[in-house]
Computed example of a mutant assay.
Amino acid sequence: MGESFHEHLRRDSRFLKSDLRLDTELVDKLILQLNRIYPQVLTDKEATKFRDLDVPTCIRLAELLSHLQEKGEEACQEFYRALHLHMEEVYFSLPTRLRHRESGDPVTRPTDRYVLNNRSPLFFLSCFSVAVGVALLYYYGESREVSGSSSALGLAALGLGRKVREVLIWYTEDGK
């Protein structure tokens, strides 16, 4: 069996205390979630204490994490549920979540879901260049019928490879 939520929270506490994404608003959301949904985890009196805005957020968060660890396994588990619900980015960047992912858990990071391809920028530039070249051939092919001028297409061939240059030069000479 894997590690307990209590052990995970003990390991993640340092990271959570230093993470700047856990601002006053998010800490309050977590406290309210634990108080309203799981009053056995955080009573009204305890929630009021941890929501005191006269105390800096970092201190309130540190005290909340210590309090949850003292409460036991269920309290720690409910904290992780609340964190996952209100701030997925923080939840998936926790050290214990990252370690699970590295050890072969099939959990994916939210950012991994949106990767369209893993090709280099050079691949994109080459595809774009081909598209521009085809567009130029099409455009100047139609304009040649109208105006008879294709010298710009011949000039475009100067910076290209030998085979492409031969095709473009052949194309410009064909119309004359």
Rank of each mutant, 00 (worst) to 15 (best):
E74Q: 00
S93K: 09
S4M: 08
H84Y: 07
R10E: 14
L20E: 11
T43P: 04
Y38T: 08
C58P: 15
V130R: 09
D54Q: 09
H86L: 07
L20Y: 09
N118E: 12
G2C: 13
E7W: 03
Y91A: 10
M1P: 02
E3R: 07
E46C: 03
K29Q: 14
L9Y: 00
D12K: 00
E73K: 03
G133R: 11
G175R: 06
H86T: 15
F50V: 00
V27W: 09
F123T: 07
G161R: 15
G148F: 06
D112G: 08
L61E: 07
S120M: 15
A131W: 11
F5N: 00
H84W: 04
S18N: 15
K29M: 15
L20C: 03
Q69C: 03
K163W: 12
P39R: 05
V164F: 05
D112Y: 06
V90G: 03
V55G: 02
R165K: 15
D105Q: 14
Q77V: 02
R11N: 13
M87P: 02
V146M: 06
H67L: 01
K49S: 09
Q69W: 04
L153G: 14
T96M: 03
V167K: 08
F15G: 10
V55R: 00
E7S: 11
T48W: 13
Y114T: 13
K17N: 06
A135P: 00
R36T: 10
S143Q: 08
L22H: 07
A131Q: 05
Y114R: 09
R162P: 15
C127G: 04
F92R: 09
M87R: 10
K71G: 02
V132C: 13
S103R: 14
Q40P: 07
E63H: 10
T24A: 13
G141K: 14
L22V: 06
E70S: 00
R14H: 09
F92K: 07
V55P: 15
G148L: 02
R10C: 04
L32I: 10
V134T: 14
D174Y: 12
L168I: 04
D19C: 01
L125A: 15
E3D: 04
R36F: 06
R10V: 07
E25W: 05
T111H: 13
E63D: 06
S13Y: 04
V132G: 04
W170N: 15
L137E: 06
Q33A: 14
R97P: 02
I169C: 00
S103E: 09
P106E: 03
G154A: 15
S147A: 12
V55N: 02
Y138K: 08
A131F: 12
V132M: 11
C127A: 05
